[in-house]
C-alpha cells in the first residue's frame, strides 16, 4: 500500500482545566490518538459533542500544538516544522471550520475571500483568470457569481458555509478537513455539496477527513469511519462494517439512536453531570462505563486498549468479543 498522506501517531492535545492548588491542571481533549489517511481516501469522524473532533482537526493542521505524539505529512514530521516551511505545506491542507460565519473575514468581500488563496499560492494567475475561477467555484457550490461584491454578513448561515467550502477548494488542496461543513444546508444543497466533494476528489485525488454528526452523510461519503469518545478513538472500521456491525457500545447506541430517534434518550444513559474533570476519571477504567449498558467489573479496573477485532476493524472495549457474539447488530 502507498505511504499515507497524513498520519497521526499517539497524538495528545491539551488545554487548561483551571487552576489547582499548586499548579495548573491540564486536561486532554485528544489522547493517544493514531490514524492514517491516504490520498484519494475519505475518512469519516464521528463522536459525541465535545469528544475532541475539532481539536484533533486543528492539531492535524498544526493550528493547535501537539502536547505529545506526531503528525506526519507524507512521512515528514509536521510538529517539527515552522515558519516558511510550514506555510508551504499549508497550501495543500485546507479546513472548513465548524462555525462558518465567524470564520470569514467580515471586512472582505467574498470575491476577495475566494481569490485570496490564488493570490498567495498561484501568483502567476492574472486578475481575469482569478475572477473566472472564483465565479466557477461559486456556481459549483450553488451561489451566484453576481454575489462577489457582498460581505459575509449579507449571507445566510448556509451560504456562509458554502463560501467556506469554496474558499477551501480554491487552492486544489491535497487534504481537505470538513468540520461539520454541511450542517447548515438543506438536504438538497447538502446533497449537491457532498456530490461536489466526491467529484473533486475523483478529479484531483485529494484526501478528506469528514467530521459530522450526520451519520447518513458520513455513510455516503466515507470509505472508513473513526469514532471518538472523550478524546480517544474507540472504534475504527471500514464504512460498511461499522454501520452494519458496530462493535463498541457507544457506536451501537449512536447508530441505534439515528434509526429510532424517539427512543434515543432511553437508548443511551445521560452523561453523568458534574463529576471529576475527565482526565482523572478516565485513568481508572473505561471512560464510557458509567453510561454503558454492558459494563462489567473489569471495565472499572483498567482502561480497554484499542485492538483489532477483525481485519481493518479496531475497537476499544473489554467485552467486544462477547458482545459481537451475543448481540444481533441493529439493522
Amino acid at each position: 500500500m502507498s505511504e499515507p498522506l497524513l498520519e497521526a501517531r499517539n497524538l495528545r492535545v491539551e488545554f487548561d482545566a483551571g487552576r489547582g492548588l499548586f499548579r495548573r491542571k491540564r486536561f486532554a481533549a485528544v489522547e493517544d490518538l493514531s490514524f492514517e489517511l491516504r490520498a484519494g481516501e475519505t475518512v469519516g469522524l464521528v463522536g459525541e459533542s465535545g469528544s475532541g473532533k475539532s481539536s484533533l482537526a486543528r492539531a492535524l493542521l498544526k493550528l493547535l500544538p501537539a502536547a505529545r505524539g506526531q503528525v506526519l505529512w507524507s512521512g515528514e514530521d509536521l510538529t517539527a516544522l515552522s515558519g516558511a516551511a510550514l506555510r508551504m505545506r499549508r497550501r495543500d491542507m485546507q479546513i472548513v471550520f465548524q462555525d462558518a460565519p465567524s470564520s470569514l473575514d467580515p471586512r472582505m468581500q467574498i470575491g476577495d475571500i475566494l481569490a485570496e488563496p490564488l493570490k498567495i499560492f498561484e501568483a502567476s494567475a492574472g486578475a481575469r483568470e482569478r475572477a473566472a475561477r472564483v465565479a466557477r467555484m461559486l456556481e459549483r457550490v450553488g451561489l451566484s457569481p453576481r454575489m462577489t461584491n457582498r460581505y459575509p454578513h449579507e449571507f445566510s448561515g448556509g451560504q456562509c458555509q458554502r463560501i467556506g467550502i469554496a474558499r477551501a477548494m480554491m487552492s486544489n488542496p491535497k487534504l481537505l478537513i470538513c468540520d461539520e461543513a454541511v450542517s447548515s444546508l438543506d438536504v438538497s444543497i447538502q446533497g449537491q455539496i457532498v456530490n461536489l466533494l466526491q467529484d473533486l476528489q475523483r478529479e484531483t485525488g485529494m484526501a478528506m477527513l469528514f467530521i459530522s454528526h450526520n451519520l447518513a452523510v458520513v455513510r455516503q461519503i466515507s470509505r472508513r469511519v473513526l469514532v471518538m469518545y472523550r478524546g480517544r478513538l474507540v472504534e475504527a472500521a471500514a464504512r460498511d462494517a461499522l454501520f452494519a456491525a458496530p462493535l463498541h457500545p457507544y457506536t451501537r447506541a449512536l447508530i441505534a439512536a439515528v434509526l429510532s430517534p424517539d427512543e434515543a434518550p432511553a437508548r443511551i444513559a445521560a452523561e453523568p453531570i458534574d463529576d471529576e474533570p475527565r482526565s482523572s476519571r478516565a485513568l481508572a477504567g473505561c471512560a464510557f462505563r458509567s453510561r454503558c449498558a454492558y459494563a462489567a467489573p473489569v471495565c472499572g479496573e483498567r482502561p480497554p486498549r484499542l485492538e483489532a477485532a477483525a481485519e481493518e476493524h479496531l475497537v476499544s472495549c473489554h467485552r467486544h468479543a462477547e458482545l459481537a457474539a451475543v448481540n444481533t447488530p441493529p439493522t
Partner: peptide
C-alpha cells in the same frame, strides 16, 4: 415533496450520488 425525497438514508444500499433538486432558486 422534492425536498423530502433528498433526505439521505442511514440504511439500505449506499447510492452512487445523493439526490438533489435540479437547477437553482430564482435570483
Amino acid at each position: 415533496s422534492a425536498l423530502m425525497s433528498c433526505v439521505p438514508r442511514i440504511s439500505g444500499p449506499v447510492p452512487p450520488r445523493l439526490a438533489t433538486l435540479p437547477g437553482q432558486p430564482p435570483n
